[in-house]
C-alpha cells in the first residue's frame, strides 16, 4: 500500500510542477535578419583578427595577406552596409523566418 501512496504523491508533485506557472515567462528575443548579420559580421571580424595574427606570426606572406585581408574587408563592408540599411529602415517583423 505504501508504494501506492508514494506513486500518488509523485504524480501530484509532477502535475503541480508542470502546470502551475506563476509569474513571468521568459520568451527571449525573436531572431531578426539584422541579428543574423551582426553574427556574420562578428565571424568576419574574427577571421580578420586570425589573419592578422597569422601574418604577424610569419605564416602568411605579404601578398597573400593583402589579398585575403581585402576580400574579408569587402565582406565586412557589405555586411555593415546591410545592417545600417536595416537599422535606418527596419522591415516589418516577420516573426519566424520560414
Amino acid at each position: 500500500m505504501m508504494w501506492l501512496i508514494i506513486c500518488l504523491a509523485l504524480a501530484v508533485a509532477t502535475f503541480f510542477y508542470v502546470f502551475y506557472l506563476p509569474g513571468r515567462l521568459f520568451l527571449g528575443p525573436e531572431k531578426t535578419r539584422a541579428g543574423y548579420l551582426r553574427e556574420r559580421k562578428d565571424a568576419v571580424y574574427e577571421n580578420l583578427r586570425d589573419l592578422n595574427f597569422e601574418h604577424k606570426a610569419g605564416k602568411v606572406p605579404d601578398a597573400d595577406y593583402t589579398s585575403l585581408k581585402s576580400s574579408l574587408q569587402d565582406e565586412a563592408a557589405t555586411l555593415l552596409a546591410e545592417i545600417a540599411r536595416l537599422e535606418t529602415n527596419p522591415v516589418p517583423q516577420k516573426g519566424t523566418r520560414s
Binding site: 565586412a76 555593415l80 540599411r85
Partner: peptide, 14 residues
C-alpha cells in the same frame, strides 16, 4: 567599411 555606398546583397542564413 563605413562608407559603402551601394549596399549589395550578402549571403543569407535563411
Amino acid at each position: 567599411l563605413q562608407q559603402q555606398a551601394q549596399p549589395a546583397p550578402v549571403a543569407t542564413g535563411d
